[in-house]
Amino acid sequence: MRVDLVKAHIAANGSVAKDTYLMELRLETEEFLAAPGQFVMLRILDTTDPLLRRAFSICSLIKPNVIQIMYRVVGKGTRLMKDMKEEETLELLGPLGNGFQGPERGKKAVLVSGGIGVAPLFFLASRLKPHDLKFIAGYGSKEDVVPPGLLGLEEGSVLFATEDGSCGYHGLVTELFEAELNKTLSRQLQVYCCGPWEMLKKLAHICYEYDLDCQVSLESAMACGVGACQGCAVKASASYPPDYFHVCSHGPVFSSSDIDWEG
């Protein structure tokens, strides 16, 4: 797999929901060979604070060398990013990590996101046929909801759950997911999810109970993104000999059964 270290020129950068931004980057490479679930590491140039690159899922690949990333403003790095203007430049390392697999022929994809975890699932959804997928997105409240139309999905193609009930199902996305499962007789499903740890843990448990294959995309603080620093460790379930996986190089996408959710 080829990893590029290239200049990334900002083509667009704007708010799409509360504290949530979509950034379009034109890369100085002819073709960026990225797959859904892979990520990039961005460096804000000419400063040592923030020092390290920040990891972002690829949200879409709109031209061979133009990608979009979606980010939530959570700290110093993302605060600086949200104020960056068109034609400003970041440095990008990627594509990194291993993306989503499948779904196998005949299986329907069920995509479940929590908050900003929606980003890599937008990319995955863009590569699947609309009638082969069900997309369930959970948010805290209505103002957090990212309109699917912004990413080229049909409005109405995504089911929403909000914790305060201000949009769609009133409750947790995991509850809506289970309710949807109970409405469907078919168990020919492949589940893909990304979101906070507790949500993924719950989904992993539900998928275990229903005997469904589940792939999770994990988030972790990381320094290098290529497996050198071993900073982004996540505990492997007991059946796997290495005690820790590295989110960057073994993941970020894992089979939910490979992870020790108590770890």
Binding site: A223, G231, K235
Partner: peptide
Amino acid sequence: KAGNPPPRIVETPSGM
């Protein structure tokens, strides 16, 4: 050696 449990790294001003 498997190493320490996570989190294993944290960024600090101009350092980690």
